[in-house]
């Protein structure tokens, strides 16, 4: 059995924006009109990053719309934040829901336009960066990430990349830690290269 050695990020540690976010939320609740603006500015980079990680590469307009929708949702539901989790967890949960909703819409849209899209796909074109080995690997990784279900991707990103503990991932995704573990396991299985690929 392996011992987990790595301590989770401590509140107040350098680079942790949680204390300043909590202070801004308090200022907003006490009626400071500038606090919401400052909060949006502070949380923006995290949301920009997490939305990209959850949704993958999208056209710029789509990505901007997702970020704006998530920010709007945060502003509208900030009064319902009860402080039972970190504010970033609350925000990540909103990002997950916004991206999940967008995926559902996309799925419906693709039912109707898949044929047209497939007809327009470039045949045999190789992007310049894929010539380089690293670029090829990253392209394979993107393809592997695209194979994940939305919930699996969210669990993987929040736990493995954003390094949130399982309990916070569960809070953000609105499920139990057991479900998170199951999704993580599924994501890991899909992300690891198959035996045929490496042998």
């Amino acid at each position: 059995m392996f011992l987990v050695d790595r301590p989770r990020a401590q509140a107040g540690a350098k680079g942790d924006i949680e204390p300043s976010l909590a202070a801004l939320v308090e200022r907003h609740r006490s009626g400071d009109p500038s606090a919401l603006n400052a909060l949006m500015t502070e949380i923006y980079p995290s949301m920009h990053r997490i939305i990209y990680r959850l949704s993958g590469p999208r056209p710029r307009e789509v990505h901007e719309d997702l970020v704006q929708s998530a920010l709007e949702q945060v502003c509208r539901s900030i009064d319902s934040f009860e402080g039972r989790s970190r504010f970033t967890t609350f925000v990540f949960g909103i990002c997950h829901r916004v991206v999940a909703r967008s995926r559902r819409y996309d799925r419906v849209r693709t039912w109707f336009k898949r044929d047209a899209e497939e007809a327009c796909l470039p045949q045999g074109a190789t992007a310049p960066d894929e010539i380089v080995e690293r670029g090829r690997q990253v392209a394979q990784a993107r393809a592997a990430l695209d194979r994940l279900e939305g919930d699996e991707r969210s669990a993987f990103v929040l736990h493995e990349i954003e390094e949130l503990p399982l309990e916070e991932v569960a809070a953000a995704l609105g499920c139990s830690t057991r479900t998170v573990k199951r999704r993580l396991r599924a994501a890991r299985e899909k992300l690891l290269p198959s035996k045929e690929l490496v042998s």
Binding site: R134, Q137, V138, L145, V157, L191
Partner: peptide, 24 residues
């Protein structure tokens, strides 16, 4: 190597100019 590429693939691109102001 594959999993490191997965992490790299999840690195977001930098914000485009004026994007933050536009979004806010």
């Amino acid at each position: 190597a594959h999993l490191e590429a997965v992490r790299e693939a999840l690195e977001p691109p930098p914000e485009s100019p004026f994007q933050r102001q536009r979004d806010l």
